[in-house]
Amino acid sequence: MQFESFSDFLNMGGYAFYVWLSFGLSAILLISLVISSNNNHKALLNKIAQQQSRENKLRKLAKQRQNDASSDVQEVVS
């Protein structure tokens, strides 16, 4: 340990502002990059899932309509 006490460590030999500014800002930048990357990943997966469920719903509706139409035809025939 190069410093006598914790307050000495915080003081950084008089360069506290510059040292902690650069370390702090770098940490903030890197952490926010990590968070945004993770968020992007999750958002993308959600988007794909959403799109898929929407397509499934549309497909189901289309099938239903087709069934309805064919039953209508049957009614007319009978």
Binding site: Q2, F9, G13, Y15, V19
Partner: peptide, 21 residues
Amino acid sequence: ALAFVPADYQQGDSFRIFYLH
């Protein structure tokens, strides 16, 4: 880098930014 490296004789403790820069 922050706590255990000896301070640079010329630049003092500001030298520790080096380990990030």
